[in-house]
Amino acid sequence: MRRGSIASLLGIGIVSGGIAAAVALAIPWLPVSASKEAGRIDFVFWFVVTICIVIFAIVSAAILYSVVVFRAAPDDDSDGPPIHGHTGLEIAWTIVPTILVTAIGIVSAIVLSQDDAIAKNAMNVNVTAQQFEWTFSYPEAHNLTSATLMLPRGRETVLHMQSRDVIHAFFVPEFRENEDIVPGLTTTLNVTPTRDGTYPVICNELCGLGHSTMRSTVTVMEPAAFDKWLKGQSKAVTSPSAATAGAAVFKNNGCAACHTLTAAKATGKVGPDLDKLPAEAQQAKQPLASFVRTSITDPNAYIQPGFPKNVMPQTFGKAIPKQQLDALVTYLINSSK
């Protein structure tokens, strides 16, 4: 009887562990891994999942076995044997889980310290989050800004992240990386991309009404292609042709997220329609050129009727270099005519 019960208990344990393992292995639980850090995090993930499957198998085997074997007959009013405890067993199920969680803790701490280490040749990128858009800038490339993140493959990147209003979070599932961006602090995140492709950048901390739309993308590319992109962008924004430079500045600063401008194929509806700039300047009783410039550097100076105050960030005046601002103003004036 005793040997038989151990055998059937083992049987149920193997079956339920097998089902759990099949669920774990057959379903693609994690998105593709696109960074060095992701590889290590996935290792911790599967290490812990394995321990969890074993424990789940033991517990569910014991529960199922009890339910089937110890079910009382409907008319059985007798009591079970008065077992009050078993010191050895109680010590065992205190010690074994302690060892297991200690192992998990050690593995996690090692991975954490590896992921936190910063390589010497790391590239820096500044990330600015605000309701509800992302701006990325490259301090080692004259603070070139971009509305999407471009990264070279194989080189560690340190993101220095700041928020202009509330708490946001930078989350790229394919990188397995996530960190809050807290107003008043600069938080950092290390990423070493290992796989070319374009992945979503998700704001992962509830930041207000547009939270679900606060998305951008990160594109990982060959280092050579990245250098080419960087050069091309620097060239575009400093191009003597105001049309080229202005269009690049418009794109890189994410203006299209909120504004409509036919020339840039922008269709945003949050802010005023930039195709109608001349008419709006007339309403504001200002000359067009200074109206456009002021509206970028000090957006609260004049608010177009029907739009709320304090929505457009008031930091573009500082963030955009003068030369690029000039190009942007010229571009907007020419495009809106």
Binding site: L30, V44, V48, I51, C52, I55, S108, R176, N204
Partner: peptide, 18 residues
């Protein structure tokens, strides 16, 4: 058990707020 997974910082970094 999913709580133990979340307790491990590296896993939490990936799945927190999801």
């Amino acid at each position: 058990l999913s709580g133990v997974m979340l307790g491990a910082v590296p896993i939490d970094i990936h799945v927190t707020d999801t």
